[in-house]
Each structure stands twice: as C-alpha cells, then as structure tokens.
Design a protein around this nucleic acid. Sequence first.
RNA 1: GCCCGGAUGGCGGAAUCGGUAGACGCGGAGGCCUCAAAAGCCUUUACUCGAAAGGGUGUGUGGGUUCGAGUCCCACUCCGGGCACCA
Length: 822
Amino acid sequence: MARPFDVSELELKWQDRWRSDGTYEVDNDDARERYYALCMYPYPSGAAHQGHMRNYTFGDLIVRYQTMRGKAVLSPFGFDSFGLPAENAAIKAGSHPRVFTDARMAELRRSVERLGAVYDWRRLVYSHDPTYIRFSQQIFLAFYRAGLAYRAEAPVNWCPGCGTVLANEQVLADGTCERSGDLVERRNLEQWFFRITRYAEELLHDLDGLEWPERVKTMQRNWIGRSEGVEFDLPLATDPSRGLRVFTTRPDTGFGITYAVVAPEHPLLAELTTDEQRAEVEELVRRASAASEVERTASAAGPTLAKRGAYTGSHVLNPFTGQPVPVYVADYVLGTYGTGAIMAVPGEDERDFAFAEAYGLPVVATVARPEGFAGGAYAGDGRHINSGFLDGLDVAAAKVAARDYLVERAGGVATVNYRLRDWLVSRQRFWGCPIPMVYCDACGVVPVPESELPVLAPDDVVMDRTGQSPLATHAAFRDTTCPQCGGPARREADTMDTFTDSSWYFLRFTDPFSTDRPFDPEAAAQWMPVDQYIGGIEHAILHLLYARFYLKALVDIGLAPGLPREPFSRLFTQGMIRLGGSKMSKSKGNLIAPEKYFDTVGADGLRLFHLFVGPPADDVDWTEQTEELIEGCARFLDRVYRLAVRDDLVRRDEERPGDLAVRRALHRTIDKVTGDIERWSYNTAVAALMEFLNTLSRWAHDDDGAHAATFDEALDGLLLLLAPMAPHLTAELWERRHPDVASVHEQSWPVADPSLLVEDTVTMVIQVNGKVRARVEVSRDVSEEAAREVALAQPEVRERLGDGEPRRVVAVPPRLVNVIVG
RNA sequence: GCCCGGAUGGCGGAAUCGGUAGACGCGGAGGCCUCAAAAGCCUUUACUCGAAAGGGUGUGUGGGUUCGAGUCCCACUCCGGGCACCA
C-alpha cells in the first residue's frame, strides 16, 4: 500500500525527539496535579506480540491524554523478569537464564519504543535486578518478623523421572510429566507461606470502594469466599463424648443429615475406619493423594462418583434426631477447607444428593419444594418440613434457631469461614528471588541479616536436563555459616513465587532511586494509589489479590507509612487477542509480530487499529480480515494527512451559512471523543473522528471553498483529539502548521463550547403499536401535548386509526410517541 | 465440576438511562478519473416479498414482564477466562 509519506522516517524522528527531550520524564517534586498510569509490567517473553501492542496502545493513550489535561503523569516501565519459561529455555540451551532474559527484555523494549509508547525510562525496574532482589528479600524478612511468613507442609507435583518439582502447567491432563512422561506424584514438603488469610475480611470489604470492573470484584469476592455458618460436633456413635467437627452454612437443614463425609487427609480417618473397610478406604486415600484439587472437586455428578468415596464402617449421631448416620470418606471433600469434614444433607445440596444416589443413601427433604419442582436437591427458600422444632420457619429464621440449638447442645460455635487459603510462596526453582533464610542444626530457622542482602544465586551453574534447581546442589551457595552461632548451616534452596515480585513493583516505580530501602514512603505517598491500572483479565484474581495484600501488610508492618491501603483505585481489564480460538501467547506459539506493520501502516496505523477494532474490554479474534481493517485505519490517517498538507484548498474570508454546521460538528466531536475516552470506549471515539473527517473534507472540497478560520479551528481540533491515538502523525502535522508553537502533545486538551452542542430541532419517532411509522422534525422542547397532536395528525397514523379513537397514546417528548390502536 | 464473562448484517462492531436496530470501518456491487492499472473520489449495500410504491421478518434458542426489549427476568445452547506452581 502506497502511503503519501514515509511512515518509518516520520515515526522514528518523533520517537527520537520524545526520548532526547525527556518529554515524559516526571520528577517527584513536579508541581502539577499527579496522575499515575500503569500497564501491568510484562513477562519478557521476547519481541512484543499483539497483546502487548494493545495493552501499551491503551496505556499510552491515557498518558498522553492526561498530560494534555495538565497533569504530571507517572508512566514507568519494567519487567516481571523471573519465571519458569526463562528457566526452561536455559535448560534447553544449556545457558544461564539471565542471558536469555536480558536479550528478551531488550527485544521487548525495542518493540514498545517502536510503538511510540512513552515512558520515564530512568525508572526502569526488573525483578532480577540485584537491587530489586535485595528489597524483595527485605520485605520477606519484615513479613517473617511480623508473623506473616511461616513454614508448613504442603504437597508439590513430584516427577520421579526428572527428580524435580513440576509446575501445574507441566503436568499433562492425564497426570504425567510433559518432559519425561512419568506419572506425577504428590509429595509433601516443608514450604513457606504468607498469611494472606489474616487480611481476608479487609480484602473483601475494601473491594467496595474500588472503581474496578464489577466482574473482577465478583470473582475476588467469590475467591475469598466468606461464608457464615456454624462449626459443631457430630458425636461419635461409639463414644458420644467425642465428636467429628464439621462446618456448615446450612444448620437449618440439620434434620436432613443422613450421612457425613471426611476428607482423605482427615486426622480421625484412621480411627473411624473399621478393619473390614480398611482396604477400600486406603485405596481411595491413595488415589486421592495423586489427584490435583481441580480433579478432586470436578464432576460432582455422574457415574465416576461411585469410585470416589468409601464407607469407613463407622457412624456418628445426627445431633438433631439422635439417629446414627454412616461416615464416608470422599475425595471431593478437601482437608484445607472448613474442618475437613462435612455433614451431608442430600435433600438440599446437589453434590450430597448425587453422592447419596451413587451410594444408595437416604434423602430427606427438610425444606418444602415449590410447586412443579422436579429436581433432586432443592437449595432455595421455603418453609421447613420434617424438621421438628424448625417446622414452618423459612430458611433465614431456621438458620438462627438451628444455630442456637447447636451452640447449646453440640458444642457449636457461630463462625465465619473463608475459602481463601494462605499463599504458598516457595518454589523449587532457580530463576526466582532466593528466600533469605538459613537452616542451622543448632539454632533452627535463622533469617539472613539485612546487612548481608541481597542473597544472590550463583552464576556458575549448569542448567541440566533434569531441571532440578542447582541451588540445592551448588555447594558454595548451599553451605554457609549460621548468622546466630557461626556454626555450619545450609541456605534455603527455594525461591519465591514470581507473584511476590509483581506485588510491590508499582511502589518501586515511585522511587526507584533509593538504595537503602525499597522506596521512600513520602515519594510513594505522592503517587499512590495508581490512578489507572491496565492489564489482562487473566490477572483478575491472583496478581490483583496478592498486590492488594502486600500493600496492606507493608503499611501495617511500618514499611509504607502514610500510604493508602489499596494500590489500584481504577482498574481496566483489556480483552485478549485470540488466534485460532485461543489466547495469543508465546507458550501457545500463535503470535503475530507487530514489526511488519511498523514499516507499512506504521505504529500510528497499528495503534488506531487496536483502538478501533472493538471495545477495549472485549477479546479480539485475529483473522484474515484483520489485515484489511488495519489498512482501513492507515487509509484514515492518509486522508488526515492529505487534508492537512494540501495547498490547493480555496480559502475564503467571508462566512457562509454552511460554515456553522462544521463548527457544530467539531464541538460535538470534542464532546463525544472526550466522553468516550473517559468511559473506555475508544472504538467509538475513533468512529467519531472518522465521521468528523468525512464532514470536514466534504465541506472543504466544496466549490465555495473553505472559510479559513473555520477550517483552521476544525483541523487543529481534529489533530488535538487524534494526538493521543496517533501521536507521530499529529505531531508532524501540527509542527508543519504551527512551526513556532509548542508540540501538539504539549497543548491543552480541547474543550467543547456548550452553546454549539445544542440542536434546535430533533427527529421524533411516531410509532403505531410499537412499530415506527413516521419521523418528524420537532423543536427540542416540544410539549407532551404538542407531540401527541403532531403524532395523531400524521397520515400514517390516521390511516391505521380509521374512524376510531386510539386506545392509548404514550408520549415521550421529544423522542417518540407511541399510538396504541385496536 | 465450581466461579466469572460473551453471542447483533457477508465480517469487526454501534445503539452511554427500557424508546429510530445496524453509527463507523472492512468486504461486495456500480460509477468517475486513466491508454490501462494502482491510488483516490462518488453512489449503493440487514434479510425477504414486490417492477415500484409499499409490506413482512430480524439482535444465539425457548418462554416472560412492558405501550415499547439487543438492553430487564427465568430456563437452555454454544464460545472464552480463572481454578491457588504459566504469568
């Protein structure tokens, strides 16, 4: 496609200028109003793909727009540079992961700069920077001192063939290792946890004050999973003085308890299991320990369920009826949630019902079914039946009465339970931030003194084929002396989850210069919270929850005094780019590199495409047609260029009646584009600019010529509105038109003149029985009466009305009148 | 399986508060310009019946609420994201 100008030359010229002028560098003592815009820092997978381009196009639009609105905009860039892919690549190449990672970071930075996205590069932050490692470790130690970090046993995926721990991603659907094909085992290891559950209530509560997409807040609420209920004892049939502790949110259904289920990990299981049942129970426990949690909680119904539970041979007593009910063990009950045991009410719980059906257990309905109810379990509201003293009460009232009964008679305690679990941060890997702990035979677990930080992984390692972390076997790293007693000690060989790095990088951006602490709290307080955070919907839960936890904890333990307790006041989650039906990512190998577009349609063309293709929150399917859409966007930019540079335009001084319409169109466009940018509707903002260009060029090419002042106002307005979207072309055209004035990006964002926004007349729709039959021009402030009269006078209405009177007339002036006849 | 989304012309999408369905663009058709082509410009384009005027149908499926539903409610189908060690 032939362009009327040299795209690359033009764009590179402006990118050089922005870099050398430091246009988008901001200092911490900037006097302007602050604005912190942030795209989630990327994992450096290599040269950018279209998902990155989309992300940074949105982010850069905001940076430039807010700058034109007069703000000091903090726009930093960094890399989430630790992680599994680099380690895998290093194993494959037999090199050090840093070599791979540094190269990929440079590549990605080049693509991002070529897009024309502007950052304060002095503030670059990346996870494997020794300075960053040092402060990540300092924070870990502070968490440890505050009791927020502790050790406990937790299972890992163990591949016996590789002799190493696998990530969930490396375990195939059939439970085998993707590398060796061996069957993966679950093995318990002592590992480090962060006590995020201490903040469960606050993490839940504070969501209310955030300007986040509702669905992300809903996902987080469900993830935290607060439920109010009762914990109580089901007395053992053999010894009623002892009990099986269970948690339920439905104490009201207690009369319907027909069996109980314990998790395979439950401490009482061995005792509950009778000799006749032992073989069957042990078989089930063995199978369950090999399965992942998703597998265990999957497919609650269906024929496979029959293989997923076993009778223990024991009974407990239903505290409501006093009747003995059997105790089962089943894999879908998790040891980590609640008390690891449940009371089963198949009448009101679908999974209990499915299990009861599979094992031939009785079902008792304790809530009256609505008429026509045909299902098995009924979870809705209704009057209680078959429930003794609860009969006749609705669910809410029965819950209270049943709870009081359990508190009195069954050692019950009203409790709040959370689904959220503590955060397991240990990773048996090399390419991550080392956990700064030492194990001494004499002193036990000893933190590395802060003066000895950072603890860095050694460089002289060979990433061998097995993938086992070299930290565990590297003698010079492993063997150390105890900071307490000076005796021989071992270093912790595990590294931290990379989510720990991404949980505080946005704080480091506010002050990446401090060398004695993670960040200066005063500087951070000036920028925080992030005004606009942008990233993929796939981060809706984990990253965004961990980062929220980190900031709250940092404030509480004194590392971030004066900071708000929430990091991201506004969040936008962009849709993903899909190619062939799945997410575009390096790991899937379905990438479309942006480079080829830089030379043809330019960064501006590609940016405009990402803005125009659809709502930013929606997924984009990359298809054959995508190329043509991109060309269309470049075509629009060409038309802007030609209109701006043409010298054969007839410029006249006297005004004509049609000129006002162009000014009105301009101000309507200013109003529309500004509103659309504020509400994340970039696709319609671009459409409005295209529409305005159509109006403007049609008018300017008219034989009468263009009124000079109107033309200049309109074209300048167009360039200003387009500047955050297509920054290179608009900078160039602005400079040609105004060589002595500051750059378009240093101009103020245009403001619409309200007097030019109001129209005198509007189109009113006349409907008969809800179908549009006529349209009439009416005054904006037409009265209801007048609207009604106009409608009834329309021939299309009279024709359908005949001699009769309308049954009803609904008038909504000045939009429409609906005449109901017949 | 559980939690969260989505579905509108040939295609991407618009309709911001329950009030004109299809803005804007892509593609297609016709034309202008040209020796010709590319580029550019102009007209047209939901489907359907009709020569036209005009009529009917239409926002994944089935029901409901309403004067009026793409938008609200109920039930479903299909597609996508997350499920705690990919990031």
